[in-house]
């Protein structure tokens, strides 16, 4: 009888998504990503507050999904151009990232204070996937996991074409700031 119960428990634990290792997963649907393009002519900043992100601190897996239409610009025409002409949001509605914390084990997470990490994975923007490695920090705040990262993206790397006329107004390399407060999730 004992054996049977144990065997069932073992088999059950093989099914993915059960609470046994669920405590290691953190998720948010309202993360924020800001990008900033600085040129002598014009500074452009856009904020997205609807970033979906998941971090599994046991396996070190990190995933992002960014609805492109949710980027808010100070000028409505900028927002229209961003969606219509540059990232083509109707064709490519989302940017995604799927990667892994570098040199990570389940024990790596420190219980308090911010810790610097590196994450490596596939960043897909405008339908183009690139392998990237970016720095960031993780911090356990209560039961939440706070994730921060700052890196640069070059629009040209993702086949985002910028017309000659506005080429001086859009930076060659755009600074991206990620700020997430992920809740533990079953």
């Amino acid at each position: 009888m004992k054996i049977k119960v144990f065997a069932v428990a073992v088999l059950l634990s093989c099914l993915p998504g059960l609470p046994s290792w669920a405590q290691s997963k953190f998720l948010t649907r309202t993360g924020s990503i800001t990008f900033f393009s600085a040129t002598p002519i014009e500074d452009i900043q856009a904020v997205n507050q609807q970033v979906g992100a998941a971090v599994d601190v046991a396996s070190g897996q990190v995933a992002f999904t960014v609805p492109m239409k949710s980027f808010k610009f100070p000028k409505s025409l900028m927002q229209e151009h961003f969606n219509e002409n540059y990232v083509e949001s109707e064709k490519y509605p989302k940017a995604t990232f799927s990667g892994k914390l570098v040199n990570w084990t389940a024990a790596s997470l420190t219980p308090a204070g911010s810790q610097a990490v590196q994450v490596e994975g596939d960043l897909t923007i405008h339908g183009v996937t690139k392998r990237v490695r970016v720095p960031g920090t993780l911090e356990k705040q209560g039961n939440r996991l706070v994730v921060k990262s700052k890196f640069a993206v070059a629009p040209a790397d993702y086949n985002i074409e910028i017309p000659l006329l506005v080429r001086n107004q859009i930076a060659k390399s755009v600074d991206v700031t990620v700020n997430l407060a992920c809740e533990p999730t079953p």
């Binding site: 073992v10 634990s13 093989c14 099914l15 993915p16 998504g17 290792w21 998720l27 649907r29 979906g52 992100a53 998941a54 599994d56 046991a58 396996s59 897996q61 990190v62 995933a63 992002f64 999904t65 989302k94 995604t96 799927s98 892994k100």
Partner: peptide, 21 residues
């Protein structure tokens, strides 16, 4: 099982995230 599942789970994290958002 745990090892295998964690691998599958790892690949699925993005898919899972996408279904939840």
């Amino acid at each position: 099982c745990t090892l295998a599942a964690s691998h599958v789970q790892a690949q699925d994290l993005l898919n899972q995230l996408e279904t939840q958002t």
